[in-house]
């Protein structure tokens, strides 16, 4: 991340990046991928039955990268075209870090493009939050604030994963998502404490994003299993820390954290998605699917 555009916010809203956490990534990469050899026989790995959990993490990052990519040439200023492009690239990198590993432990041997380009909607495991259509800039900052706060807590937890590769990917991702959180926080504060119009728009965006949040903290079957093995983090345990992070930003922004919502999105982790997902996949996949077997 390179860009914190326009006016600086004097007090950093999030803590500075202090933990490089690169050693885990490097040691994980030096060793052969566990299970990589075993995937040739086509059998799933009973000792690593948590591919479904990792697929949720990878798909969240992949789908949000796709949405953020839509901002390029559409952002409020050129600096923001670059910044949102950076966030998209980081998330895309996180997904690309996980997909081949998932392919090695789910017994299919699939590569990153098999996951991204050739799966139908019911096979995707991302939450509804990331698949929603691009709204206005306040909507995006509300989504990025919540999602990056969630990812900061998630990846901080995953750096202690009993799976070295997961810990390695999380160590690298943690550095990135701290910047994403910083970037979103700075904007939410500027918009909340900017003009009357921006305040109203930011408040409305915080309310619109509300129905998509509970799903981030749902303990679905795959995460219960992964957490039980010490590989994953139980989503419900992240809730309070994430809300606390967001609440601090919202308060500094002179906004109000809305409470409660009648509708709560659900089902993303088991492949039940909302209407925008089909169109997103059509756009993401159509060229790759139009040329079966082609390389690019």
């Amino acid at each position: 991340m390179s860009d914190h555009a326009t006016a600086p916010v004097t007090e950093p809203v999030t803590e500075p990046v202090t933990d490089p956490a690169t050693s885990a990534t490097e040691s994980a990469r030096r060793e052969p991928l566990p299970g990589a050899a075993g995937s040739a026989d086509g059998g799933a790995h009973d000792d690593k039955p948590y591919a479904g959990y990792l697929l949720g993490l990878a798909d969240d990052a992949m789908v949000y990268a796709q949405r953020l990519g839509e901002w390029m040439t559409n952002a409020p200023q050129i600096e923001e075209d670059m910044a949102l492009g950076n966030v998209a690239l980081d998330l895309l990198g996180q997904a690309r870090g996980l997909y081949p590993y998932i392919g090695s432990i789910d017994g299919t041997g699939r590569g990153e493009d098999d996951y991204a380009m050739l799966r139908d909607e019911r096979e995707w495991r991302n939450v509804h939050l990331v698949e929603q259509e691009r709204g206005d800039f306040a909507d995006e900052m509300a989504r990025l604030l919540w999602f990056s706060a969630y990812q900061v807590e998630l990846h901080a937890g995953l750096t202690d994963s009993s799976d070295d590769i997961v810990a390695g990917v999380a160590g690298k991702a943690l550095k990135e998502v701290r910047y994403h959180l910083d970037h979103a926080s700075l904007w939410v504060v500027r918009l909340g404490d900017g003009t009357d119009e921006s305040h109203a728009r930011m408040q409305a965006a915080l309310e619109r994003v509300l129905p998509q949040l509970a799903e981030l903290f749902d303990d679905d079957e795959a995460s219960v299993l992964a957490a039980g093995l010490g590989v994953g983090v139980l989503p419900s345990t992240l809730h309070d820390a994430v809300v606390a992070r967001v609440a601090r930003v919202v308060e500094q922004a002179t906004l109000t954290l809305p409470d409660g919502s009648r509708w709560r999105s659900r089902g993303g982790r088991s492949g039940i998605h909302s209407r925008p997902m089909g169109s997103l996949l059509a756009e993401l996949q159509h060229i790759a699917r139009s040329h079966p077997g082609a390389t690019w």
């Binding site: 555009a5 326009t6 006016a7 559409n74 952002a75 409020p76 200023q77 923001e80 206005d136 800039f137 500027r190 918009l191 900017g194 003009t195 119009e197 921006s198 728009r201």
Partner: peptide, 9 residues
């Protein structure tokens, strides 16, 4: 579309 964002900043 970004005018209100720049004004806020």
């Amino acid at each position: 579309e970004g005018a209100w964002v720049r004004e806020a900043a």
